[in-house]
């Protein structure tokens, strides 16, 4: 286990969120997973040794409970782009979290949020890039 683990808050514990939470937790980081419903948490494996919080992350009280002001990293991976973008901005601008990442499905919203200094990852663009690469490889 690494000595200097990071404090990471993951908002949205679906397939991607749970995967990240399990992996980061098993790598020795302190992870807090937030989800609207408790039913998402079974996605967390036995390796996950972090905390779970059931709540709506668009309410700052929930983020405060997750001690976002002390977090090194916040990752927003709910299925709702707007929740991710809002939570990411609140973490960055109000809780001063050093590293904030948001998943955004809609590539058209990426540019607007790049302007606000929010780092977004768009699964659509990423997958499209991989497909294009795979096509050109075969030629």
């Amino acid at each position: 286990m690494k000595k200097t683990g990071l404090y990471i808050v993951i908002v949205g514990c679906g397939r991607l969120g749970a995967h990240l939470a399990n992996r980061l937790s098993s790598e020795g980081h302190s992870v807090v997973a937030i989800d609207l419903s408790e039913s998402a948490f079974p996605g967390l494996s036995a390796d996950f040794s972090g905390f779970r919080i059931e709540g709506d992350a668009t309410q700052t009280a929930v983020l405060r409970e997750a001690k976002v002001h002390k977090a090194d990293v916040l990752i927003a991976t709910t299925h709702d782009d707007n929740v991710n973008l809002m939570v990411a901005q609140v973490a960055k601008k109000i809780f001063n979290t050093p590293k904030v990442l948001a998943r955004v499905f809609d590539p058209r919203r990426e540019t607007a949020y790049a302007q606000l200094g929010i780092r977004t990852i768009c699964p659509t663009s990423v997958a499209a890039g991989l497909f294009f690469d795979a096509i050109s490889e075969d030629e």
Partner: peptide
């Protein structure tokens, strides 16, 4: 939904 209201206003403005 607060998140929608925020993002709508930000997109409209930006």
């Amino acid at each position: 939904n607060d998140q929608d209201n925020l993002i709508i206003c930000q997109l409209a403005s930006l």
